[in-house]
Design a protein around this nucleic acid. Structure first.
Lengths: 238, 238
DNA sequence: GTCTATAAAGTGATAGAC
DNA sequence: GTCTATCACTTTATAGAC
């Protein structure tokens, strides 16, 4: 906190970088403080000095990316809506892609960074810092609002559950891409993260649209605005 | 292995039951042998005597359900196909529902059993016993074949990735249903597992069908466009 | 099959010298 | 800020009595 020159890599940073890699590869629970300090070339006491505790480091690692990522999601979603009526695919894309923009902040490879993001949710609510839960609450409300505009026939409960399925598909894809490779013996091809996310976006968009008739004409990248009769049956605190 | 009367509950069984509950609640990695033996009312050495090691117990717990569940899936899928041409929803259902039939084998509540199933995959490939990976390999080939019949335009790679997304949506739903409750503050309603799975099935079925039924050629932004006409370019060992 | 006792190593955390 | 040394446990696993 006190001394931090320009291009200098502090111990704190090195600890976080080492932790990210280990957490991505082995999960947040199965990495010891000693493994982290050892890989970071730091002293065993460094984690407790800089982060207060092991949990403090875990939270720092998670918050470092989740917050900026969620901000980027909101930014992209708002920008998208400003350009006119958005397609379901485009909205889903603003949720799925932003993680890719954050890769550059880390020393991790894209694949490893993807695993890290996936593991963040694969661990369950118990793992997540409260701030992250709150952040996702806001995000959920915001996306519910966005989908409500495009798919007026979609109920709140339906929308939230479909968002949940979306997160599941994404998390599993990011965290366990290797599982599919192993299970299929490579018959799923070996696409990069970008293409996989593209496939996932199309899959999810179809799921979200399912059974809801009222969507503007343009399915993809279409900007034809066609307002469907308003259906304000439900009122919420958006 | 030697003495096992009719209605008697052996130590081995009690150990597995205790382990299931703890694994479901806290994950496979974060439960110690002592917690298990203590809850089972058994001696600390019992796990090593009956299962060889902690890992042996984990594998036993996983295999106890995964194998019968996958068998039930295959059974239901085959039965479904015998009745005539199946819908995508029906095929997906044979994958998602069988877990519910297995609940009765356990002392766990349906919700807890669901969590256990979800955690089994949330842990990644590394956690899974080799036999389970093999079993899922067969399952993937079988389902690919089933979907190939109903959706001839679906390529191998597309189908396998969509199956992967399906597993992700299902696993996340089963393991982390509480996450959605917390994040939305209850605005997703409080449906039982049956209804949630129903929603998930419709969501997934739409995703699997995407771009295959409706439109001959995918109109996505830039990447691979799959052909709908017969394409025997690839040959696999089905 | 079940028990105690114990091994051998690992865990997060901290006091205090530098 | 960084280090060593150490505390106070916990971990899995096992040898050997019963």
């Amino acid at each position: 906190m006190s001394k931090e020159k320009a291009g200098e890599v502090t111990t704190k940073q090195r600890l976080m970088e080492a932790a990210e890699e280990l957490f991505a590869n082995e999960g947040f629970e199965s990495v010891s403080v000693r493994e982290i300090t050892s890989r970071a070339g730091a002293n065993v006491a460094a984690v407790n000095y800089h982060f207060g505790s092991r949990t403090g480091l875990v939270n720092a690692v998670i918050e470092r990316y989740i917050e900026p990522m969620n901000q980027e999601r909101l930014r992209q979603l708002t920008a998208l809506e400003r350009r006119g009526e958005a397609s379901v695919e485009e909205i889903v894309e603003t949720f799925m892609r932003p993680f890719a923009k954050l890769v550059s902040r880390s020393e991790l490879s894209e694949r490893l960074f993807a695993k890290l993001m996936g593991r963040t949710f694969g661990g369950g609510v118990a793992l997540l810092p409260e701030s992250v839960v709150v952040s996702f609450g806001e995000l959920a409300r915001r996306y519910r609002k966005a989908f409500g505009k495009v798919l007026p026939g979609l109920s709140d409960a339906d929308c939230y559950w479909r968002l949940h399925f979306m997160v599941g598909a994404m998390v599993h894809t990011l965290a366990h891409g290797d599982m599919l490779q192993k299970v299929t013996g490579g018959r799923c091809g070996n696409p990069g993260i970008d293409e996989v996310l593209g496939r996932c976006i199309r899959f999810v968009a179809a799921g979200i649209r399912e059974g809801v008739d009222a969507e503007p004409a343009g399915k993809r990248a279409g900007k034809t605005v066609k307002k469907v009769a308003a259906k304000p049956q439900e009122e919420f605190d958006f």
